[in-house]
Amino acid sequence: MDEKELLASRFADHRDHLTAVAYRMLGSLSEAEDAVQEAWLRLSRSDADAIENLRAWLTTVVGRVCLDMLRSRAARREEPLPEVRLPDPIVADGPDPERQALIADSVGLALVVVLQTLSPAERLAFVLHDLFGVPFDEIAPIVGRTPATAKKLASRARQRVRGAAPAPDTDLAGQRRVVEAFLTAARGGDFEALLAVLDPDVELRVDAGPAAAGVRARGAATVARSAIVGARAADRVRHVVVNGVAGLVESSAGRPVGVLAFTIRNGRVATIDILTDPVRLARLDPALFEE
């Protein structure tokens, strides 16, 4: 194995970790892959022998690349964002494969949705420190602030995350029982059964893509009515894992119509995130929607 092949092998050992960092920063799998590829290019042009801790060096590089991407995204934004913009879902049929489990977040899409509301600097400080344990001394140069200021950025982000995405139930089997009860009630048009399984302050978010208006609704009665109507859109539903939590994929005539991710808290549905954007659904594994 020559020197370049050895370096590529060492980089590959950290690829899943780097993709996890980039995905949480960007909410886009394709952009996360771009950020990781940029990190490889920078590594290949560097003196790798002088890098003492390759994982830490690469994490910092990916963080810097993602920060630049977020700032560029904000700078070129001319039109307002859709009412609802969900991150790319990570869908697995059954227990998460090792790589998917690494990328997926234990609180599902809900955390990444909240992260999208933070400023780029807040997002980087929170993701690198709170989720990946990077010291503030290493975060500070990336955001161009002092370590004390970087700590304040993470603290501010942490407060917003805790307020908007409280910790969910962690037992996947228990989550699935709640989702199954929700599905049965929605398909049966049982309004009272839906109210029993929904948190009184449940939030529904539907991302239909840039060409259609999204939906945001709150409250058990409103969401229950939407669930009964929405249950008619699919003729086949499969239980899956979406970003580490219980979810569903829906299809009609063999074509994907939706991915649903549920946040279950205290045995009730606290949030439902639904992606119906046909462009992004088409990027998912077709086997998920096969008859």
Score class of each variant (00 low, 15 high):
96 D>Y: 00
268 R>M: 07
29 L>S: 14
90 I>Y: 02
62 V>E: 05
176 R>C: 00
216 R>F: 13
253 A>T: 04
215 V>H: 12
13 D>K: 15
179 V>Q: 12
180 E>F: 03
78 E>H: 13
192 E>V: 07
220 A>D: 08
190 D>A: 14
54 L>P: 04
23 Y>S: 02
199 D>K: 10
238 R>A: 10
16 D>Y: 00
91 V>M: 05
127 V>S: 04
83 E>A: 14
214 G>M: 03
76 R>A: 11
193 A>L: 01
265 R>I: 03
65 V>R: 04
24 R>S: 01
171 D>F: 01
59 T>I: 08
106 S>D: 13
11 F>I: 11
235 D>V: 06
37 Q>K: 13
87 P>Y: 05
19 T>E: 10
228 I>E: 13
221 A>F: 10
93 D>N: 12
291 E>M: 08
32 A>R: 04
48 A>C: 07
277 D>Y: 11
40 W>T: 04
132 F>V: 05
199 D>C: 07
182 F>R: 15
238 R>V: 11
52 E>Q: 12
223 V>W: 07
291 E>D: 14
227 A>Q: 00
175 Q>K: 07
138 E>S: 15
210 P>K: 08
103 I>L: 15
262 F>Q: 11
122 E>N: 05
267 G>H: 09
89 P>T: 10
42 R>Q: 13
220 A>R: 14
115 L>Y: 05
84 V>P: 02
98 E>I: 06
264 I>S: 01
281 L>D: 00
127 V>F: 08
90 I>H: 05
274 I>E: 09
227 A>E: 05
132 F>T: 01
60 T>D: 14
172 L>N: 08
243 N>K: 10
186 A>E: 01
114 V>A: 12
202 V>G: 00
200 P>L: 10
84 V>E: 03
246 A>S: 11
218 R>K: 15
40 W>I: 02
46 S>A: 15
214 G>D: 11
287 A>M: 01
48 A>M: 05
143 V>Y: 06
218 R>S: 06
50 A>R: 12
60 T>V: 15
75 A>R: 15
116 Q>F: 13
195 L>N: 11
94 G>S: 02
115 L>A: 08
3 E>D: 11
101 A>W: 02
29 L>Y: 08
272 I>C: 14
265 R>E: 08
67 L>K: 04
81 L>W: 11
221 A>S: 15
248 L>E: 14
151 K>P: 00
231 A>P: 12
64 R>C: 03
88 D>M: 04
206 V>N: 10
79 E>F: 11
132 F>D: 03
99 R>G: 10
209 G>A: 09
228 I>F: 12
241 V>T: 15
62 V>S: 04
15 R>V: 06
212 A>C: 08
51 I>Q: 07
13 D>F: 05
137 D>S: 14
76 R>N: 06
71 R>Q: 14
144 G>C: 08
92 A>Y: 05
122 E>W: 09
85 R>A: 10
94 G>T: 00
273 D>C: 06
106 S>E: 10
9 S>A: 15
190 D>C: 07
210 P>H: 12
113 V>D: 06
24 R>N: 05
276 T>R: 14
273 D>P: 07
176 R>D: 03
131 L>Y: 03
185 A>L: 09
78 E>I: 13
176 R>M: 07
175 Q>E: 13
204 L>D: 04
114 V>F: 01
